[in-house]
Structures are given as C-alpha cells and as structure tokens.
C-alpha cells in the first residue's frame, strides 16, 4: 500500500510539516493531523463551503484539495484570523450580530467573507450575497450573516 507523504506548507504564517496519506484531503489533514479543528466538515463534496480556507490567496473548499497538493503552498484557516489584539473584526461582527446558530458553517463563512473583503473592502450587499453562494447555512436564513459581514466591513 502507498506510504505516507511528507509535506511542508505555510499554515497561518508558520512553517508546518506533516505526514499524510495521498487519499487524505486537506480538510482531514487540518483536523486530524494538525488538530486545527476550527475548519468544519459539512458535505465533504464541494457543495456547502463549511471547510473553506484560503490557499495561496484564493478561497477554496479544503475537502476537494488533497493534503499532498499543498506542498510548498501557503494557507490561512480560521485559526489564523485572530490577531494579537483579539478577535478579527469579522469574528466580532458575527458575535455581535448573532450570525450563527449551530456554528458549523461559521468558520467557512468567515473565511469566505475575509477573502471577499481582502479583494473588495467595500463590497455591496448584493456582492456579499453573490460571493457567499458557495457557503450554505441551514439555521440563520443568511440575513444575519450578510448583516454581520456588512457591519465588519464598516469597522475595518
């Protein structure tokens, strides 16, 4: 049987090394090997966006990337958002606007919102809604999430 592969990647600004089997997704590597359990597993098939992370500056579903594929690449997960001065403005806004209920989709939404605001700091409501099409939430009805993202925008 195939052996484990040695991978080096920059994760949340730090150089990390890990061993993974070729069939392990980046999501599994993050959660099971690196114990970065902030990234959640939803559908595991690229539909729900719960596992969203930022890979080389681009928002991706970590369930559809193999762990071995991130060799030499740089990624940011929800754990990488908090700064020395506490929660990221998006995290604060999600709390203040009660933009979560069960919370499974939240890290994915926050990473998606971060990728959007990095690209477009003054996104309109329509742009926020369009951008978040790849993230599903079964509790909130989305409205509070959108409001939280727009509130974070104002505070940044």
């Amino acid at each position: 049987m195939p052996g484990r592969v040695h991978v080096i990647a920059i994760i949340n600004g730090e150089k990390r090394e890990f061993l993974c089997e070729p069939l392990q997704t980046l999501l599994e590597v993050l959660r099971d090997e690196l114990k970065l359990t902030g990234t959640k597993e939803g559908c595991s098939n690229g539909n729900c966006g719960a596992c969203s992370v930022v890979l080389d500056g681009l928002l991706v579903d970590s369930c559809l990337v193999l762990g071995v594929e991130v060799e030499g690449r740089s990624l940011v997960t929800i754990e990488g958002l908090m700064g020395s001065d506490g929660l990221h403005p998006l995290q604060k806004a999600f709390l203040e606007n009660a933009a979560l209920q069960c919370g499974i989709c939240t890290p994915g939404f926050i990473m998606a919102a971060k990728a959007l605001l990095d690209k477009k700091p003054r996104a309109t409501e329509a742009e926020v809604r369009q951008w978040c099409a790849g993230n599903l939430c079964r509790c909130t009805g989305y409205d509070k999430i959108v409001r939280a993202i727009l509130a974070a925008e104002k505070s940044m």
């Binding site: 966006g49 928002l59 951008w131 790849g134 993230n135």
Partner: peptide, 9 residues
C-alpha cells in the same frame, strides 16, 4: 460555473 470556491480551483 459553480461558486467562488469551485471557480478558484
């Protein structure tokens, strides 16, 4: 095509 995540990859 799909959504942002899909188009990025």
């Amino acid at each position: 095509i799909g959504d942002v995540q899909v188009r990025n990859r």
